[in-house]
Every structure is written in structure tokens, then in C-alpha cells.
Design a protein around this nucleic acid. Sequence first.
DNA 1: TAGATTGTTAATCGATTAACAATC
DNA 2: TAGATTGTTAATCGATTAACAATC
Lengths: 207, 207
Amino acid sequence: MGNDISKVVIKRLPRYLRVLELFMEREVERVSSKELAIKLGSTASQVRQDFNCFGDFGQHGYGYKVKDLYAKIKEILGLNKKYSCILVGAGNIGQAIINYSKFSNIGFDIEAIFDINPKLVGVSFRGIEVCDVENLNDYIQKNDIDIAILCVPEIQTLQTYEILKNKVRGIWNFATVDLNPTDYTSVENVHLNDGLFTLVYFINNRN
Amino acid sequence: MGNDISKVVIKRLPRYLRVLELFMEREVERVSSKELAIKLGSTASQVRQDFNCFGDFGQHGYGYKVKDLYAKIKEILGLNKKYSCILVGAGNIGQAIINYSKFSNIGFDIEAIFDINPKLVGVSFRGIEVCDVENLNDYIQKNDIDIAILCVPEIQTLQTYEILKNKVRGIWNFATVDLNPTDYTSVENVHLNDGLFTLVYFINNRN
DNA sequence: TAGATTGTTAATCGATTAACAATC
DNA sequence: TAGATTGTTAATCGATTAACAATC
């Protein structure tokens, strides 16, 4: 794998996917780097540079086939595969997240849900019954889980992390405490408030 | 206002706040650029460069006073003021967002909630009764709203945007459609899935 | 073929890091 | 004062933009 692709490029790939989805909805077959750039508020040059990281999949004098490009970017991100997921913490955010998008449609299968709250244990979300978090460790040992979506309150974050660490391949962390990746476990720390705070800055500093 | 501060610096400010909060919890009084850098996985050089955008508030040979620095960064972001907010769309994400953090504690007062769903109209969240979205336009005209938190489904996004545009100072947009800022209205487009997708990339491309 | 648009190299721009004099 | 750490300038590194030959 060409492992030398810069992080800024990777972060742009999901945005390309979204733009390409729009083109696909409109049944557009081909698209040029310039058209993509306009939709993205970027430049044609950057678009071509980005795509060049992965080898050439455009056509001189023609542009890019929307469907092919879309499939290629999905493949690069690894979205052509399926991922087994669990949700830990089925409170407000947890519930919102699993309802947010059709995860299973895009390859993310929620296979189990855990919560500490006895009132939630036994309740079902999207057809999956919430288990007591007591069983998490056991479950993790017996099942191959790719991704844990972590939505527990601050105080429970670290102890849950200890259970998940080096057992799941990735943690999508909505808890307010930052978690560190390990050799085996990647981490994506989400801090929703950060975006709100920068929004406030830009509200106050229009230019 | 020194309006020439780069966006990458602004985006780091909320992270500084988080780290400083940790120091404050531990009642640490002073901190050096190096200590901050370690906590942030950054460099002392960068920390000092960042802070220099706003004038000097460190002390030679001493470092930074945690509380002062914290207050200063909050002030730069504009978090020393209060913001009147409304929530449009009280479904899963909407509810999760307003429950997520103690918004009113940090200066964000949710003053009204709107939804199109008759089953939600009249229900209360955090003491605020959900209004029919029919009343949104009227409400926006009569009240000075700083920020709209937009959590409506994809199909309702654009029509809601038309109502909010140039009436609120900022839109924190959780809808899947990207919205553009106007001269008056700043926009923060949140795409939760983007983070999940890059996580998947890093799972598959460990280095 | 002529026109269009790519892939790719070179130039520019901006952000990060290094270094050190200033100073508490 | 001596030690520490800042503020700030200069050097490096990386990312973006411009340019153009290659080619469909």
C-alpha cells in the first residue's frame, strides 16, 4: 500500500465521495477536475494532485468517470469491505449515532450494543437488544470486532477504553476524553463542541 | 481585530482549552509551552507561535498562567459572551446535541425548538416546548438569534436554510447537505461520517 | 485532426520547526 | 545573579497552485 499519502489528502476523500454522490444522483457520467473543484471550493490542480497519490484513473481530454472514481475512492478508504461494529453507551448520542445514517447500508454492521444503565439493558434499538456492559469484555474476546463506537459518559471512558484497547481495530470516540491509538487500535476522537467554538469565532470575526 | 489569524490556528484553540481545563482540574497554576505541547502532541515552538498571533500573554522564564491563558483563549474565540440559540429539528441528533454538553453553562442558551413532526410539537426537552416549524419564520423575525442548530432530514434542509439565511449569525449544520455561508451567516457543516471513513482508512493502513 | 483535460513537474505559498537573544 | 522560558526571526518542510507537455 502506498502508505505515504498525506493525512490532508485522506481527510478530503470523504468530501469527494459526497460530491460524486450528487453527480451520480443526477446521473452525470463524466466529471472534470475543474467541475469537482468548483463543487468542493478547491482547485482543479489540487483535485488532480490528490488523485495522483493513488495512480491514474482519469482519462486525458475526457476527465473522470463518476462511477469509477467513486468506486476507486471508496476502495482506497476501505469502504468496499464490511466492518463489524459494536456500540458502547446507548444514551442520547449513542442512539442518535446508530440512527444517524444507514450504517449497515454502507458496510457498518452494528452487532451488539452495551450499556451500564439497567433501564436500557434489554431495550432494543434497530433490532438489537442492549446488553449489560458487564458482558463487554467477554463479548470482545469471543467475537472479532472491527470498530467500537464509544458513547459513554466521561467517567466511564477510560475503563471502557482498557477493555477495548488492542481488541478492536478502531474506536470512534464520542466521549469527551481524548483516547490514544495503540499499535493495533486506531482512534478517531470526535469533539463536537470544537466546531461550535470555531463557528463562534467566525461569527465574531467576519472578513 | 487581528483578522489575519490563520484558520489552522483557530481550529487548534478549542484543543488548547481542553488541555487547559485538565490542568485547572488538577489546580496547576503555571504551564510552559513545552508542557502544553506534550499534552497536545505538538511542539513548544508551535504553541508559542500560535499564542503570538494574539499578542504576548506569557512570562519570560516562567511560562503561562493556566487560568489567564484559558480566559484569554475563550475571549479570542468569543466564548466570554452569551449566544442565543435555537434548535431546528428535534429528532435523534437534535435531542442528542442539546443533551450532549451543558450548553447553557458555556454560554449557549437554547431559546426555542422547532420540528415538523406533530408528535414532537408540544413535547418538552430541557424545559423547552417544541414548536411547529411553521412558526420558525415568524420567530426568527421577532427574536435576535445568534446560532441555529440545524438537525433536520436531508429533504428539509434547503427550505429551512432559506428561512435562517441572513437572519441568524451562524448555522451549526448537522444535516447531510452542505450549506454555504453568506455575508451575514457563518456555517459550520458537520459530517460525522467523514471521521468514520478516515478511521477506516487508518485501520487498513497502519504505519 | 483539433479540442479538451489529464498527469506531472516546477514555482509559490503557508505552516511548522529550529534557534537564540530578550527578559522575568 | 543564574536558570528558565518566553517572543520572534530565520530555516525547513509540506501543501497548494501554476504551467505545460502528453495524450485521449
